[in-house]
Design a protein around this nucleic acid. Structure first.
Lengths: 338, 338
DNA sequence: TAAAAGGCTGAAATCGTTTACATCAACAGG
DNA sequence: CCTGTTGATGTAAACGATTTCAGCCTTTTA
């Protein structure tokens, strides 16, 4: 038999299609009696409402677009998992968009929302891939949207982030307390606000401690393991080496650690290494990595909830949610070598 | 102005809606002249065809459901990325379904296909969450489907895998060649065919080398880092310890290595450690992990292509694709300690 | 007992496309 | 000059659900 439609169920249970629809969407409107009869027919026929028909009528897809720069990244993956779980609970599906850093792909995914394929969008990039008329208020021009993790410049937009500057400061203060004064930084991509914020925290902590900033110790990076390796190679070649290095991601820290091991340096004996993110592997590294913990689960959950509220038409009480970070001190940091 | 529909474009360019549709779906049927006129109107109005209408008519969603057990896992994430990229090229979107190991979620995601929300499904679990009549041929009962990575029992189903048994054997042969005779195995979940295959490879290699299998050295695990830690704790308590351990995933190997470090054992001096997967972090571990490389990108790509062929109605030349693994020898394995 | 209210249900319009079929003009071949 | 063919377009019927509106039948209320 061909796949049953709402009409088939209607016929089977001796009611009109309208009533079948009500049984599914609004059971309260239907009498106990017919409801059970219709439900029985639905079960027996194995009827699944065709989403297209419903979507066409309601103009709701039941999908949420999630745009991330790289699914392979542990931080993103962790957040996505939470998001997916929340979405499913709320009856939504996740459309995954991995931009691999390319703006045209961002654009493409944003169009999904414009064409109605998704009801809302969760952006993990700082860019806003929508054409905007800046003379008018933003909110009216945008679909339901939440910007998470990488905060863009627009104040009006719903956001979920951690205080990256404070996180970096906390990291630095830990190193300063251990007596380090020559502390290198390995940055993330400077296009990302996250990385700029962390850099600001780095500078601020040093200034606060009255330590002159040596630009030679600030090494560019891209959050990836390989760039951590390269950065450490560079640092080791310096005639006046740092005694500690603050990597803006755990991945880079892991890269840096591997280079130190390779050349036989002791951690933290010869150099302290500090990460950022607290990915799953941080604790398994030898020595276990001191780092700044990001609550991935909570970030994901909060983003999703903020989006769901918008989709329900509610006005969330706050449009800017800051999740708490925490400094996790493990074994990769220690006092300055004498 | 409200969002323009196909009728608006028709009016704007002085043609019928049918022609507008043709311009978009089948430009060949339309004269050069009107085509440019219509395109101009589309651009000017910023018209995006509403997918619901089209989907309702064509019964195609343009979505592909991807069902995986855990997005956080590096192996899965790597495959997904390739899949997503291929899908996008082909004009499809990825609906992400993370089952977190729960069968009811598998079921739920499979229903997406039944309700037409996705045109095909990519399964990374061994389970087939569809109600089947086993007396009839399977192929007619299933939607376009590819089973990747975890091979289920059904021969008729399209699959992309690596030869896990041979991979495990290769790993074991490497250890045997190094002179190891007491080799432990840390398994994945035995519900997964992958893990059973690897176990078979383990046994086969030992039998082939005429080494009696000591069941004490076979430790259950779940592919996660923590279970690797626990397994190693167990192994270290044995009165007659192994000299090498073959972990069925890199994650478990990383866990095992961390325990060895913790207790001050040298790798591979005191014990050799072998992984499986070759995740990104394998090479950064100290010592770098010897492991079996899985071509994630190729697995993802092949799965997607197999699915796309089905969606196009083509019959793929082979329905069972085996991707090559390769043994990657790094520093975590070495000769037996004397 | 009449009117009002409330509970349930069905008829029919509607959402925005696609596409089979009809139409019509132009043109080629006989 | 007629006929058949081709190319370009329009007409209108789907596709499968939701939802407004109206109608009917009970109850309640005055």
């Amino acid at each position: 038999m061909t796949k049953p439609g709402i009409k088939d169920i209607a016929r089977l249970s001796g009611v009109s299609p309208a009533t079948v629809s009500r049984v599914l969407r609004n059971p309260g409107l239907v009498s106990e009696d017919t409801r059970t009869r219709v439900m029985a027919a639905i079960d027996k026929a194995g009827y699944k409402p065709n989403r297209f028909g419903a979507s066409l009528r309601t103009q709701k897809s039941g999908n949420i677009m999630v745009v991330i720069p790289d699914i392979t990244n542990q931080v993103n993956a962790g957040i996505i998992r939470a998001i997916e779980s929340e979405a499913q609970k709320a009856g939504y599906c996740i459309l995954l968009g991995d931009t691999q850093g390319k703006p045209e792909r961002e654009q493409h995914y944003a169009d999904m929302v414009n064409s109605g394929q998704a009801d809302g969008i969760l952006l993990f990039t700082a860019n806003l891939p929508f054409s905007l008329d800046h003379s008018r208020p933003l909110l009216g021009q945008l679909p339901p949207l939440v910007n998470a993790n990488e905060a863009n410049e627009y104040d009006e937009i719903y956001k979920v982030v951690i205080d990256n500057r404070a996180g970096a400061q906390a990291a630095m203060e830990h190193l300063l307390e251990l007596g380090h004064t020559r502390i290198a930084a390995v940055l993330g991509p400077l296009e990302t606000p996250t990385s700029r914020e962390r850099l600001a925290g780095y500078r601020q902590a040093l200034e606060h401690a009255n330590i002159e900033i040596d630009e030679e110790l600030i090494i560019p990076g891209d959050y990836g393991t390989e760039s951590g390796r390269l950065a450490m190679e560079k640092l080791l070649k310096l005639r006046h080496r740092p005694t500690a290095v603050f990597c803006f991601s755990d991945d880079m820290a892991i890269g840096a650690v591997s280079v130190l091991h390779q050349y036989g340096f002791a951690i933290p004996g010869d150099m302290s290494v500090m990460g950022f993110d607290d990915i799953r592997y941080a604790t398994l590294l030898s020595p276990a990595l001191t780092t700044v913990h990001q609550p991935l689960e909570e970030i994901g959950k909060a983003s999703m909830q903020l989006l769901l509220q918008q989709l329900k038409g509610e006005e969330p009480e706050q449009r800017y949610i800051v999740q708490p970070f925490s400094l996790v001190i493990r074994q990769s940091t220690g006092p300055v070598p004498r």
